[in-house]
Write a protein that binds this DNA or RNA. Sequence first.
RNA 1: GGCGGCAUCGCCAAGUGGUAAGGCAGAGGUCUGCAAAACCUCUAUCCCCAGUUCGAAUCUGGGUGCCGCCUCCA
Length: 526
Amino acid sequence: MSLKVFNTLTGRKEKFISREEGKVYMYVCGPTVYNHIHIGNAYSYLIFDVIKRYLSYKGYKVIHVQNITNIDDKIINQSIEENISASEISEKYETAFWKVSDELNILRPDFSTRATEHIDNMIEMIKVLIDNGYAYVSGEDVYFSVDKFKSYGKLSKKNLNELIEGYRVCVTKGKKKPYDFALWKAAKPDEPKWDSPWGEGRPGWHIECSAMSLKYLGMGFDIHGGGKDLIFPHHENEIAQSEAYSGTEPFVKYWLHNGFMNIDKVKMSKSLKNWVFAKDVLEMYNPNVIRILSLSTHYRNDVDYSPKILNAYKQAYNKFLNTIHDINIVLSQEEQNTGKSVIDKIPSLKKEIDSLRLNFESAMDDDFNTALALSYIFKFAREVNRFAHLSLLKLTSDIKQILIRAKNIIIELTSILGLDLSEEEISKFRISEKYDKKKLEREINNTASKIYNKVFKLYPQDATKLSSSIISKSNLEDKIETILSIRNKAREEKNWIIADYIRKILKGIGISIKDTPLGTKWRKEY
RNA sequence: GGCGGCAUCGCCAAGUGGUAAGGCAGAGGUCUGCAAAACCUCUAUCCCCAGUUCGAAUCUGGGUGCCGCCUCCA
């Protein structure tokens, strides 16, 4: 089975053949760092992260370039707004961008290219465009002459007449044609500026992506990605500039565009002010939940953002965690030699493992159908749950082996989707600044003291372990274990009121527990 | 005004000619001290109309509704 991708340029799914065998050169449009990124921006980066991960899984060495647009009108406007310099704005929001990107488990690009560090490359390119007659100087501005580039519109399927008729085409003085676009803009007083043959100014928006992608990836690179709103004019203009500059085509082999993240069916956009910052969503939801939401529909479709839907996928994510958690519980048993009934189910589970991988790959090979790929993993999880439930009785070495394989393939395949099912995620506390450990510690200490008050008369000796002087010294895991030991004492004495009380207040701080034949197990919920 | 996309169970959603994946929610059941989790069972004929076909959610035509691009936008 070979990979097929939907190419915006041709409008159909095509077999993916990389320029160089075993390597994929990929450019993804990155953020303009004038504000925090919203969840729709994050969606795009997340999609291409999964594409990159899957290509790596397929054995390609992926060379991934992503720009940071750190000079732009919006940055200048924001610097006036916040009354700090443009460079301070871009530094501030670039830092914020990486923080969110890392939290979302998005792999860093191989080259993160800042526009301002490539001004020379852009000037060089503009010079050539002027020399070749594709661009003209108007005052201290430089414009690209769209009429000169014959195949203009091939990506967005627009023709120039339509553009002229479009009532929204703005006419700017200095342009020969309304659809010409700026390659270089003269600086107004107090604006950031760079020297150029045409005077002091800054580059137009589109030129940076051409200059930087060509510098790092060269003409004819494999994948160029971004949101579908970039198709026109941004990517259309990139093609025009790059192919006019090089005199060859194609600029890019495969153009991939993701759909939008909508709110109430409407695109998240600056003008409607209906965006939600990714950082704010991350305060409320586990990054894995955001991923599952993003991957539960095909990347070219729009996906709706809402707390209701996010909560549904939170449950879905919990399903994965529970499966791994339950496997771990079964595996924590002592091995035995007399596993009876389940033994004969091993071959069928083995078969499921093999077909899961094949199904996963065929789904992903079909233009990265993550929704289908996920559904196979869910289906498999049910098989494993059924098996693990049965084998809770006896753990033989054969059963142990197959369960470890089952667990590993779930972890492997979900990690291609960028999901994290690590031990920390499942049963322990994540060492992460996002989850405020101090707050959690306070909550648990609080809970311990509540329980202490409740039980110290009943179990004076055991309760001592919960006294604030002792409990405050132990680590988070030990605190929980101590609390559970008290609860189990109560359960032994069939004091269900105390036992249920403890379970209830632990639940209140996000610790869920389950009583199993192998003892009481707990995990932190997110 | 031009161009384009979408419409599948209560919600999210896969499926592009062969008889409707998966997740969430709901109902009943098994297990459990009770829970939780898990498992089992149940819940749609695919916006409407017409057509092509042995056969259509899937193709064609018409209609309705929603959304996007044409201006910065992932």
